[in-house]
Design a binder for these strands. Structure first.
Lengths: 225, 225
DNA sequence: TCAATAGTGTCTGTTAGACATTATGGA
DNA sequence: TCCATAATGTCTAACAGACACTATTGA
């Protein structure tokens, strides 16, 4: 950071999209914007204008921790956004996406988990930021343990598969999913089982990556065309 | 953009990593930094502090066009960088990567294509930006026609394969590469051939995506572990 | 003719998805 | 007992890589 700006608030913000699974869909954390209460409610993503001597990642981590009420299980920069109105009236926002494990709850009326299909009350820029964050999560799903970070430490393979299905937005084949998981040496079984209603109880697993994948066969041409 | 900042220079920069193939490796465009010539040369990425009423993408496009001498064949945001020294002494840079087709040349001593393995003279922040840009290019290679945009309008399949190999940093299997390309309906043959030295002449192709890929089989677990 | 590169056909091992089957609990 | 879910085995089609072969030019 420049000497001039040391300690003073920056003319840009760090915005955090906190994501968690909730009621079978993804939800993001919104805070009430206590601007002039002229009729309809206005909401916003948690944000902060960093001081001049802070690193972006540290600020994002801090904003996420305060909003979620615990350290995020994963955090990553999404990009810079300048279009549209922002609660801070700054010209630029650096966006981050942060993951909160399943079951993370908030308290109070001014901080809520809202399903991503209904972001009414959010400003233009922050709505674009949420879309960018969700795209970033999907794009990085195969490289980072995102699905695992949205689950508690112990989980069933069906829960893990459902998390992947939720993030990808499509169904997966059970046998294939487990075969690929096995081959990747990413999980190890615990000696616990969980019984939910009817049906055979499921064994609990934990995330415990062992080997490194080094495949990358061929090239993929997944261009939209 | 906020009313306050309209028309005035912003307290951040838009930095552009212009990339082109050159002598069988990737090169980025550097400009001479005419700061106090105290001994060793200093170089920098092209950058600009946008006015308050400009959109980021437009500024990046403009910076790229001026640096390359022509419109970039593809451009995309990489992210925001705040660490390390920057020629502008601003606290933040929004980085873009821009592609220049093979054969794009520069003129003058103050603007050169430098191979990515030797970025001596570049400041800390911009060196991190270049690394981020190269990573972004590799990560998006399967989703955007990056390799095609680094080639002229007509190219041989061997040239296309070599471009993929250059970007991926590994050799590819010729028959498999062509099979996958065929299946993706991305190119169409022209009625021209090119003869280079010995060997059978190669047919020229052009980028002409026809159908949409809709495969995405299974899940990939490419986590590092 | 030889060397070099383009382009293609065939074989094989790997993998994804369909399908079926067994296992194990609760109602 | 029936039903629901877990977990796994088998079959097949698609695909990647190896290999070999033909095609076509310049030296």
């Amino acid at each position: 950071m420049s000497r001039a700006a040391r300690g003073r608030p920056q003319p840009f913000t760090v915005d955090v999209v906190a994501v968690t699974p909730r009621d079978g869909e993804l939800a993001v954390l919104l805070e009430r914007e206590n601007a002039g209460n002229n009729g309809r409610e206005r909401w916003m993503l948690p944000w902060e204008a960093p001081r001049g001597d802070e690193q972006l990642d540290d600020v994002a981590q801090q904003v996420a921790r305060e909003a979620i009420g615990a350290a995020p299980s994963w955090i990553s920069q999404v990009g810079a956004f300048a279009d549209g109105r922002h609660p801070s009236d700054t010209d630029l926002s650096v966006a981050y996406v942060a993951l909160a494990p399943l079951g993370t709850d908030t308290q109070g009326d001014d901080r809520v988990w809202r399903p991503v299909r209904d972001l009414a009350g959010l400003g233009e820029r922050q709505e674009a930021i949420v879309q960018g964050a969700l795209t970033a999560v999907r794009d990085r799903l195969d490289l980072y343990p995102i699905a695992f970070r949205l689950l508690p430490g112990a989980f069933t393979l069906s829960e893990l598969q459902q998390m992947y299905e939720l993030l990808l937005g499509r169904r997966l084949h059970k046998a294939s999913f487990r075969r690929a998981l096995q081959a990747a040496y990413l999980v190890e079984p615990t000696d616990e089982w969980r019984s939910e209603g009817r049906g055979r109880p499921a064994q609990l697993y934990r995330y415990a990556p062992k080997r490194r994948r080094r495949s990358r066969r061929g090239v993929r041409f997944d261009l939209l065309g």
